[in-house]
Amino acid sequence: MADLLQVQGVTKRFGGLIALEDVSLSVRDGEIYGLIGPNGAGKTTLFNCMTGLYDLTGGEVRLGGVLLNGLKPHRIVEAGFARTFQNIRLFANMTALENVMVGRHVRTRIGLVGAILRTPRARAEEAAIRDRAVALLDHVGLRGKARTLAGHLSYGDQRRLEIARALATEPRLLALDEPVAGMNPTERRQMADLFQRLRADGLTLLLIEHDVKLVMGLCDRVAVLDYGRKIAEGEPARVRADPAVIAAYLGGEAA
């Protein structure tokens, strides 16, 4: 299988602090790839670097061969890279449906004139946006909650909504930042099922997660970050046995 995402020697410094140092990894088309590591290892920083929220200090990121360095965040989404946030960033005062509809923005075209004149094309597009959003809500298990304000949804549902919103951008790669944090075992299982379904739909998933058990059961391959460096990469079982990984976790957390 071909590599969808290639991260080559990515370095990120904040002033004197090195947050990421020469990190390289590649995610293959259609796999679920896990990114694990202790708190502060640089996982979210790597996400922010890949999605254009931070400028890279060095290195390059490519998606399907397209260089993402220096692109604005919306261009990166357009290239097919969608993400969720560790500390959920929904549009809390918009409804669940509206949140997902915002996600359709990048794949739709109607601008000022179309909106003002309400041309047949504009109406058709608006209807298509709505239909797609409803279907996506359904897909992630939020049927019947379309009119609920995002801020009023339960924690688990907010995570789902963030995924639906990201899916609305029609990504090739979906990057999830701790998508099951704070969920109970049942919810976690349901989320794992959802990820399997998404993969079956042809999506590639990149996953930051603390729940090592979930990662081991779900991911085809994982990489371990520690102090901003990649210390291991490979199949879950092999990585789990890696002494460097065990040392990084100081024997804690089931690793």
Binding site: L53, V77, E78, E98, G103
Partner: peptide, 17 residues
Amino acid sequence: RAWAALREDEVAAAAMG
């Protein structure tokens, strides 16, 4: 909708394309 999203959370709006 894009304006509303922007008003609520500019970073998330950018991350939504």
